[in-house]
Design a protein around this nucleic acid. Sequence first.
RNA 1: GCCCGGAUGGCGGAAUCGGUAGACGCGGAGGCCUCAAAAGCCUUUGCCGGCAACGGCGUGCGGGUUCGAGUCCCGCUCCGGGCACCA
Length: 827
Amino acid sequence: MARAYDAVKIEQKWQHHWLEHGSYQVENDDPRPSYYCLCMYPYPSGPAHQGHVRNYTLGDLVVRHKTMQGFAVLSPIGWDSFGLPAENAAIKTGTHPRIFTDERIAELKTSLIGLGAVYDWRREICSHDPVFMRWNQVIFLRFLEAGLAYRANAAVNWCPGCQTVLANEQVLADGRCERSGDLVEKRDLEQWFFRITSYADELLAALDGLEWPDRVKVMQRNWIGRSEGAEFDLFVQAPDGGRSEVALRVFTTRPDTSFGMTYAVIAPEHPFVDQLTTENRRAEVDELRSRAALSTEIERSKAADTGEELTRRGAFTGSYVINPFNDQPVPVYIADYVLMGYGTGAIMAVPAEDERDFAFAGTYGLPVVRTVQPPDDFEGGAYTGEGPKINSGFLDGLDVATSKARAIEFLEEEGIGTRKVNYRLRDWLVSRQRFWGCPIPVVYCPDDGIVGVPEDQLPVVAPDDVEFLPSGQSPLALHDGFTHTTCPKCGGPARRETDTMDTFVDSSWYFLRFCNPWYSDGPVDPEGASRWMPVDQYIGGVEHAILHLLYARFYQRAMIDIGLLPSIEREPFRHYFAQGMIRMDGSKMSKSKGNLIAPAAYYERVGADALRLFHLFVGPPADDLDWTDQTDEIIDGCGRFLDRLWRLLTEEPVGTRTGPLNDDDVAFRRILHKTIRDVSQDIDRWSFNTAVAHCHELLNAFLRYARIEGGPHPDVFTEGADRFLLLLAPMTPHVAAELWERRHPGESSVHEQSWPSFDAALVTEDSVTMVVQVNGKVRDRIEVDPSIGAAEAEALALGSERVIEALAGASPKRVVVRPPSLVNVVA
RNA sequence: GCCCGGAUGGCGGAAUCGGUAGACGCGGAGGCCUCAAAAGCCUUUGCCGGCAACGGCGUGCGGGUUCGAGUCCCGCUCCGGGCACCA
């Protein structure tokens, strides 16, 4: 597209200017009030795509706007530079992940600079920087000391072909390994965990006070999944029919339904399985147990996709437990629908009031005893609604809530149970069997067990002389020089941990490091954190709404509680804005989908300003955006807007009139000041598309004004031009800076000016359109004084010829008057 | 299945508190300029009827509340997202 000005040239000029002048560098002792604006640091996957453009355009607008409003704005950026794609590339091409990653960072950095986004580049950090790794490892060791990091068995994804553990995202939807195609199994392996569940309650409760999108808060609430109920013992029946010493602990949210328990279920992995299984049942139980280990995950995901009812499989163990509420024995099953990872891994089954239990009971011919009276018209199996208790002894006749409380009282009196809250949230599994991540800094000593690497020996860095083989094994585990080490405690031979940390660990505190990336006495400078935290505005894709944001919230609290942070606010992100995703042909724009639209071609064709303007203008930033055939035409339209602005300010005569302002001058000034008001409001409420629309209206009015008879008044033209450029400075920074410089040679740049204010006297209307309706239909519009009274408005409306005509002789029954905007005559 | 969003012209979208539906842009149509084209400029553009003035219809569907509903309430349909055996 032919432009009115050389966009490439002026954009490069200003990008160099901002870099060379360190324009958005900010010192920690800056006297201005602080504002921390942060876009989620990107995974460096190569040149930017439109998702990046959108994200960093929003952040840049905020940074420039807040700076003009007089804040010291912290605008840092870095790179989430550990991760699987670099390692896969290494296996494919033999290039070391660091080389691959550094190249990708350079490409992405070029894209962002080309967008005109400004940062304090001195603060740039990346996850794979040894300094960052060192502090990452220090935090891990402090977590270990504090009991927040621990090692435990976990059921993990195991690929028999690759002979390794896979991360969830490496398991395809059909339950196969993404690399080898083998069916993934569940295996119990020792893994590292962070004790995020200790903070479950606080992480849940504190959501209420956050200024985040509601849907994100809802997602986090559901993810944490608090449920209240009771935990109690079911004693195993002794051979004589009475209670034995052994008890099965179960969790339920419906203790009120206990009288309806007709069997109990334990998970296939439950430690009591062997002990409860009688000899005649062992073959069947063992078969179910091995089958569950192999295939439940696959079948679950398959059932989830097709919406099919899951087949719940189980086997009777041969044992019975005694229901403490009615002393009746019920059979104990093992079944794949009970999960070891939740509650106690064992349940009382009440088919009448639980759909899963009902389905299972149907399959295995187990009885159903209702304890809640369903309504007469109820058809179906399990009834989970309200109703009076029946068949429930001392609970009969009570409602559900009351009988829950009574049932728990009973359990507590008997000393066999207690009120209990459970969470869906699990502890955070942080081990990854990968090379390209931050090594977990521990060694295993035959004598001293798990020993942390002393802090003066950190960081533990992966060796370079490794081979990337498509074996699926982490190269670290195959590197003798790395794995063979000495115990820091006893000096004897020891084995080094070869697992690395989940990359979500890096992103859980990088924003704290930005506060002072030069700090050398710890991971986070207490003064820097106190100065800048919490992040005032966090911006990023909603795909990180659960994990990243939850982990960061946990990290901030954990670091405060163990003294790695001063007692700053416990929430790291005060406001979070979730930008919508960019879709193409119905699917998300991403490298893996191969549907990336790189911005570089647009920088050359229409310029970064036009592309930025497009992203701001095309719709609300929270909404998804479809990249279609029409998109390029809209981008060209944004270029045309800038061309017309350029011509206006460089080619139109500014006028030669002197003396007082005439009506045209005043009318234009009114529009100008209203635009300043509207754009300011729109930016504050993140309605950038309407802010741009108001700029369009201003330009249309300005062009008309510039061409009026007698020409514009030079003072008004100047006022209009300067204020217009101030409004555009955060949105289209290059062209605003260039035009400003041409108008103000030798003076400070547009971005160093204050955000413009408007003249309140000019934005008050001297007349408004009053709508006159008859029976709710618009029949007339009358220009009136804004301060018009109700009586006058009514008289004007009833006097309207159009109203008289519409009434056709009928007399008004009622007149609704809402001066000055509306009168509705009801006939 | 459960939980959250959303649905407005040919298209992206606007309408901030229940009060002029369609701002602004894209696309289309017509015109000016030009030998011609591109660019630019001007006019027009929700649908139906009418030469026009104007009238009727219109915010996914069906009801309701209200003087008045895109906006609030009830019941659906479709699309998108999250979770998914969590007892």
